[in-house]
Design a protein around this nucleic acid. Structure first.
Lengths: 222, 222
DNA sequence: AGTATTGGTTAATATAGAGTTAAGATTATG
DNA sequence: CATAATCTTAACTCTATATTAACCAATACT
C-alpha cells in the first residue's frame, strides 16, 4: 500500500509496529535512530517518528523533515501523554498517537494521512483524464490511451496534484520540483509546461487542465 | 481564524467546546442536531461532529458530508473509545478525538486540519465578495464564480485592502502601487479602477466596493 | 443656465509576459 | 561506448495587459 519510514529505537515496540503495518500491506523501513533519515525521505510516502530517541529528539527531527518536505505526512508516536507534548507535536506533525495504542488505530490513522496527502491509490478524475495517484498512471478515458510522462513532467504534474486548486507561482513550482532557487525570467519551467500540455490537454492551444495565471504562475483544478 | 460547524446535542460539553474554540479566535456555529447541517456547509471551514446524536448517528452524517464535500475536514468527537468506533470514524473522517479531552488538544488538532486543508487563510467579506487574503482568491459568493484579476488590478486592489476604510488620494495609490511619483492629471490609475470595477462591482455604473471621493481619490470600506 | 473642473469611458498603441521551436547539453540505456 | 531519450538554453513569435490619448459625463461654481 505505502512506503513507510519508521524511526524508533526500542526493539520491542519497533518489531511489533513494523509487523503490524507490514501485515496490512505496507512496506516499512525501520531506522533505529534519526541519523540517516535524510537519504530515505525521497523514497517514502509517510514518516512515523518516535519522540524519545537517543541523541536528537523526535521533535527536532520532525521539524527538520517538515521544513524540507512539507508534503510528506508525519505521524508522531509517543509515550508522553502530557498536553504540552501533544500540542508541541501537532504544531508541525500531522498526527500524534500516544502509547499504548491499538495497532488498528495506528493503521487507521496511517490510512487517513495517506488519503489526505493523496498518497494512496485514489483515482482522481480531471476532465478527460483518469489518474491513479499511487503509481501515477494517467489514462485518457475518452480514448482509452495511457499517457506516459518523462521524469520532469511527472514531477511537475505530481506537484500540481499535491496542490490541487492552489495558484502556484513559478518560484514555488520551480523550487518544489528542482529544489533550487528560481531565476527570474528562466524559461525552463515553461518549456516543460508546454510539453506537459501537449500530452495532457485535448487542445494544447486552449489548455483546460493546466491553466495559466498571468503574472503569477499556474493552477490545476479539480 | 476559521469558521467551525459543530454538531453536538449535549448542552454541557457543547457550551464548553464552543467557548474554548471561540476563545482561540474561531467562529463556531453550534447545531443541536444533524438536521439542518446541509445549509451551513457552504459557509464553514471545518466540521466537528459528535458521534452520539439523537436520531441519525454521527457516522452516517459524517459520511454523507464527506461524500458531498470531500475537501471539508471533519473531526469526530466521541465518548466511545472502542477500537471499532475509532476505525469506523477514521474510515471517512480526518481525525477522531475521544472524550474526555484537553481543550488545547482539540484546538491543536483543529489547527492541523486547517493547515492541511489549506483553510487557515483569512477571509474577508465585502458586500458580495469573499476574499481569501492569503492566496488573493476573490469569489463572488452570490454566483459562486471566481474573479481573476490581472497583475496591476491585483496590486491596486491589494493596496485598498491593506488600507481599508481609509480615503486614499490618487498620489498615495499611484505611488504605493507603481513606486514612482504621480503626475497630476495622469489617467492611468483611473483606467485601471474602471476595469477593476467592471470585474468587482455588481453594477459598475453604481460602484459599491470602490467608492469615489471627489477631489481626493478613492476608498474601499469594510 | 453656462462654464470650469474633475472623473469616467473607449479604443489605439506599446510592452511585458507567456508560448513555441529547435539546437545543443546532459543523462539514461543497451 | 554509442545511441537514444530527455532536459536546458536561447532566439523568436504571439497575445494579454498596461498605457496613452482623445472624447464624454457628472458635479460644482459663478
Amino acid at each position: 500500500m505505502a512506503r513507510v519510514l519508521y524511526i524508533e529505537d526500542e526493539q520491542e515496540i519497533g518489531r511489533w509496529v513494523t509487523m503490524n503495518l507490514t501485515e496490512r500491506g505496507h512496506h516499512v523501513t525501520w531506522l533505529r535512530s534519526g541519523e540517516e533519515v535524510e537519504e530515505h525521505l525521497a523514497h517514502c510516502d509517510l514518516v512515523i517518528l518516535d519522540v524519545m530517541l537517543p541523541g536528537l529528539d523526535g521533535f527536532s527531527i520532525g521539524k527538520r523533515i517538515k521544513k524540507e518536505h512539507p508534503d510528506l505526512p508525519i505521524l508522531m508516536l509517543s509515550a508522553r501523554t502530557a498536553i504540552e507534548d501533544k500540542v508541541e507535536g501537532l504544531s508541525f506533525a500531522d498526527d500524534y498517537l500516544t502509547k499504548p495504542f491499538h495497532p488498528d488505530e495506528l493503521a487507521a490513522r496511517v490510512e487517513v494521512l495517506l488519503r489526505r496527502f493523496n498518497k494512496n491509490d485514489e483515482i482522481l478524475k480531471l476532465k478527460h483524464l483518469t489518474i491513479h495517484t499511487k503509481d501515477m498512471r494517467i489514462v485518457n478515458h475518452e480514448t482509452g490511451e495511457e499517457i506516459l510522462l518523462t521524469g520532469k513532467q511527472y514531477q511537475i504534474f505530481q506537484y500540481f496534484l499535491r496542490h490541487l486548486n492552489q495558484i502556484l507561482t513559478k518560484e514555488q513550482l520551480y523550487e518544489g520540483v528542482w529544489g533550487e532557487p528560481y531565476i527570474e525570467g528562466d524559461k525552463t519551467l515553461m518549456v516543460h509546461i508546454r510539453y506537459l500540455r501537449e500530452k495532457l490537454e485535448k487542445d494544447p492551444k486552449n489548455p483546460e487542465i493546466i491553466e495559466t495565471i498571468r503574472g503569477i504562475g499556474y493552477r490545476v483544478r479539480k
